[in-house]
């Protein structure tokens, strides 16, 4: 798996509450059998007009957010369907880190399994970042996962919490299947004990 250590990048805001994975990647794009190439379909129904042109009213389409690699979102981001196509689409579009007051459970897991870092921050901090993003052109953040710190352009830092095991896996790009298979004899033991073997 790809590792995540530090990232410096432009922040794009997404205003909506309860953004569901159906919005992140609508169902008509779930028919592909590959993991790649979903970026152009990200937020499809919001990002494009019915004629296929970019929707100028969708904030992420603004040229100043074009190179964004950090997405600033609101509560319960990623709710609904378990589709891992959602993080695949974000990743392929260029988003490697998400900031929100809360994430839905399955989506949160899926991010880690794809080398994307979802950071939970207190609501007031998120609100302040929303203000910053809109006031300051080219607003960038530096994310430092090993030190659990976010640095703002004015030099101020925000620290964040993250489960230590998830951090360890992400920083080292560990393959979860490989990790589990280190304990294969335990699985076999369990299977023997439960009459599965």
């Amino acid at each position: 798996m790809r590792s995540f250590t530090t990232l410096e990048g432009i922040v794009a805001p997404l205003e909506d509450l309860n953004v569901d994975t159906d919005q992140i990647i609508p169902k008509q794009f779930l028919k592909r059998i590959e993991k790649t190439g979903f970026g152009k379909f990200l937020f499809y129904d919001w990002r494009y007009l019915p004629n296929g042109k970019l929707n100028p009213d969708f904030e992420m389409n603004h040229p100043r957010y074009k190179e964004a690699s950090i997405l600033l979102a609101k509560e319960n981001f990623g709710c609904g369907s378990s589709r891992e196509h959602a993080p695949w689409a974000l990743d392929d579009y260029g988003i490697k880190c998400l900031l929100a007051p809360s994430f839905a459970d399955i989506f949160y897991n899926n991010c880690f399994n794809n080398g994307i870092l979802p950071i939970v921050l207190d609501y007031p901090l998120i609100e302040e970042l929303f203000k910053n993003v809109r006031q300051i052109e080219d607003f960038r953040l530096s994310i430092d996962l090993p030190n659990q710190r976010i640095k703002k352009p004015d030099g101020k830092t925000i620290s964040f919490d993250i489960d230590s095991f998830r951090k360890h896996c992400l920083v080292n790009g560990l393959d979860p299947i490989g990790l589990t298979l280190e304990h294969e004899e335990k699985i076999t033991e369990y299977e023997k004990e439960h009459g599965i073997l």
């Binding site: 378990s82 899926n110 299947i177 298979l181």
Partner: peptide, 12 residues
């Protein structure tokens, strides 16, 4: 579960 986890369950 997500697709990575589907793979995890298939394998382990």
């Amino acid at each position: 579960i997500g697709t990575s986890e589907v793979e995890h369950v298939l394998a382990t």
